[in-house]
Design a protein around this nucleic acid. Structure first.
Length: 383
DNA sequence: TCCCAGTCAATAAT
DNA sequence: ATTATTGACTGGGA
């Protein structure tokens, strides 16, 4: 009991970033008063806003922090939803992502560092756990209350809250179907997109358009997919960087690029008959992990190679759909014919599609370099 | 405009 | 019930 959280004076907070429009859900767990845009309780501390603290934070070991946080949470049976909502001001999904794949401190933007600073602060707080547990109890109580009242009272309670609408229902008078159906790409579509990515991480609008129509997807979906894929690949690399450097735990050496296999899964296997290794990817994590940000300038220039492709540099196979319906085809994917990967035996038990990711990233880098090289003076090539 | 970093939020997977 | 995944959105850059 005793929810003695000294909410203290709100830290001025000049401009609350964060705008977010409506946020219907987000039930407010009992009494706790919290504004949608409020920077969160934020541990007492001096009267600094987090932003200020982030700005002067000394460089934290994000990996160690997330590791510790995960440990504390599991040890005490605290879920990441509660933790995220209460301590970080983030949703469960974001927390999960953050804890599982923290980016190294130096690659984080100011905003991106914020959650880590909050976590650090939380870890330092001697009562961190108790406070969270209190919150949990509080929530449970509120939940029980609701249940009980709806049970004994037999019905609706809250006076108008939540206007969530279901959708579905095909018809309904004047309906605006305001409830995104949530696009879900089928395995084949992802497959095709990945393939396209490997040849061209930065497809031209033309190519995107083409992919979209071939896969029967909205253009924006394809664009989004590329954006997401690129950044997620990038992130994977960051992780490697951390693990390779960290001296934590037994073993863990620097030098031998041994990587624990990520989950298998991922049907994938792009290599067709053609050889196996994708180009020489033999970079034993040594390349420039620098942050060549802002070093390259670029003008546009896209060399497109369509069909007849005869150019290509690295190894590559034909692109376009992977045994996908042709151009049109109404059909609604789904079902799918468990495609038969044609190339019979996937002779590759030891997948490690991690290599592939690296290769893809190399292509990515190459892409940028080429762009920079094609025009303008090569300022500085750093290697 | 395109890109990216951060997130959200629906829904898959455990 | 939680945690993991992922298409889409937002805001900042250039």
């Amino acid at each position: 009991i005793s929810a003695e959280e000294s909410v203290n004076g709100l830290t001025g907070d000049p401009l609350a970033s964060q705008s977010s429009s409506l946020k219907p859900p987000s039930e407010d767990p009992s009494g706790g008063e919290s504004q949608p845009g409020t920077p969160l309780p934020l541990p007492g501390h001096s009267g600094l806003s987090i932003q200020e603290m982030v700005a002067m934070s000394p460089e934290l070991d994000t990996y160690a922090i997330t590791k510790k946080v995960k440990e504390v949470l599991t040890d005490n049976n605290l879920g990441q939803r509660l933790f995220g909502e209460t301590i970080l001001g983030l949703t469960q999904g974001s927390v999960s992502d953050l804890l599982a794949r923290p980016k190294p401190w130096h690659k984080l933007s100011l905003k991106g560092r914020e959650p880590f600073v909050r976590m650090q602060l939380w870890l330092q707080d001697p009562h961190s756990v108790e406070k969270l547990m209190d919150m949990k109890r509080l929530e449970k109580k509120a939940y029980m209350k609701r249940r009980l009242s709806s049970l004994s009272d037999g019905h609706s309670v809250d006076g108008g809250l939540v206007g969530s609408e279901y959708m579905q229902g095909s018809q309904s008078p004047g309906q605006q179907q305001l409830k995104k159906p949530r696009v879900v790409l089928g395995p084949e579509e992802k497959e095709a997109l990945k393939k396209a990515y490997q040849q061209k991480p930065y497809p031209s609008p033309k190519t995107i358009e083409e992919l979209a129509s071939q896969l029967n997807l909205k253009t924006s979906t394809v664009i989004n997919w590329f954006h997401n894929y690129r950044s997620r690949i990038r992130r994977e690399l960051f992780i490697e960087e951390i693990q390779a450097a960290g001296g934590v735990g037994p073993g863990s050496e620097a030098g031998s690029p041994s990587l624990r296999g990520s989950k298998s899964g991922e049907g994938d296997s792009c290599d067709g008959t053609e050889s196996e290794g994708t180009v020489e990817t033999r970079q034993s994590l040594g390349i420039g992990l620098e942050d060549h940000r802002g070093a390259c300038k670029d003008h546009d220039m896209e060399a497109e190679s369509e069909a007849g492709g005869s150019n290509n540099s690295p190894a590559q196979l034909d692109c376009t759909a992977t045994g996908l319906a042709g151009p049109e085809a109404s059909s609604s994917s789904s079902a799918s014919s468990t495609n038969i990967p044609a190339s019979g035996p996937a002779r590759n038990p030891r997948d490690n599609n991690l290599r592939k990711k690296k290769a893809a990233n190399l292509n990515n880098i190459i892409h940028r370099l080429e762009k920079a090289a094609s025009k303008e003076d090569p300022s500085e090539w750093e290697f």
